[in-house]
């Protein structure tokens, strides 16, 4: 049976892991390789590295980091953050990333999804969708959640799947950072509508949140950052708990 995936996310700035709330008050949290290796050893099913740097200089650092990650770990990993062109994707894939995650650039120019899928295959295109419930409507946000769009979340999800996305990483901004549980309703709405895997993100605070996610929705994976990072929820504890609750887990 295909297993539900547990995916830790690492925020990267200038080649280092950083921590902060909504990208504010960032502090250095160590070498990404050390943390990645720890997660792999603990049983993480995949890793996501989100680059939150802006400058071209720092982007070169990212490529070097991706090469080091690829050499060090033996599970799949996704790299995202600020990707705007097929050339950037080529550099990341060549460096050893298994998948790339695109967000704002896909909203700005949806054809980018198809261009990446045509060149590298759908399996490596993760489209990240940041969504927020505004006046009863789940609206797509871009630029790190700072800017609203005219897009409605389920419609955009269907469109990205049609364009060749291999997976959707759905982050509920209402839930993000609350540790109050995943946004079940929108996660299920999107999962039902598309035939590609959906990774739920935002709101994970304790093991029961993952159980509820996998019982109440068809999400293929749950992603979280700080709870794993701070060892509030250790991955082995979480996975053992989910196995006991009869969730299909590696």
């Amino acid at each position: 049976m295909l297993k539900k995936r547990i995916i830790p996310c690492l925020d990267i700035k200038n080649g280092r892991t950083v921590k902060g709330v909504n990208f504010v008050g960032l502090r250095d949290a160590g070498d990404p390789i050390d943390l990645a290796k720890r997660y792999v050893k603990e049983g993480a099913d995949e890793l996501v590295f989100l680059d939150i740097t802006a400058t071209i200089e720092e982007r070169k650092t990212l490529i070097q980091l991706v090469k080091r990650i690829a050499a060090a770990i033996n599970i799949p990993f996704t790299v995202g953050g600020g990707i705007q062109s097929v050339e950037q994707v080529a550099a990341l894939i060549t460096a050893g990333a298994d998948k790339v995650s695109i967000n704002s650039a896909a909203v700005k120019r949806p054809a980018l999804i198809q261009e990446i899928a045509d060149r590298f295959g759908s399996q490596c295109v993760v489209v990240a969708i940041d969504t927020k419930l505004v006046a009863g409507k789940w609206e797509v946000f871009v630029r790190g959640g700072r800017q609203g769009t005219a897009l409605e979340t389920t419609a955009w999800a269907v469109e990205v799947a049609r364009l060749g996305a291999g997976e959707i990483l759905l982050t509920s901004m209402n839930q993000d950072g609350t540790k109050a549980g995943f946004a079940l309703e929108i996660t299920q709405q999107v999962s039902e509508l598309v035939n590609i895997p959906v990774i739920a993100s935002g709101g994970a605070g304790k093991p029961t949140h993952f159980k509820t996610l996998f019982q109440k929705t068809e999400a293929s994976a749950g992603l979280a950052a700080s709870i794993f990072h701070d060892e509030e929820v250790a991955i082995p504890v979480l996975k053992n708990y989910l196995k006991k609750e009869k969730i299909a887990i590696r």
């Binding site: 049976m1 295909l2 995936r5 099913d45 997976e167 035939n195 590609i196 895997p197 590696r250």
Partner: peptide, 13 residues
């Protein structure tokens, strides 16, 4: 056949 999510992506026994 599109009877479940495709691609088959993830860990399986």
């Amino acid at each position: 056949p599109p009877k479940d999510k495709v691609p088959h992506m993830g860990w399986n026994n």
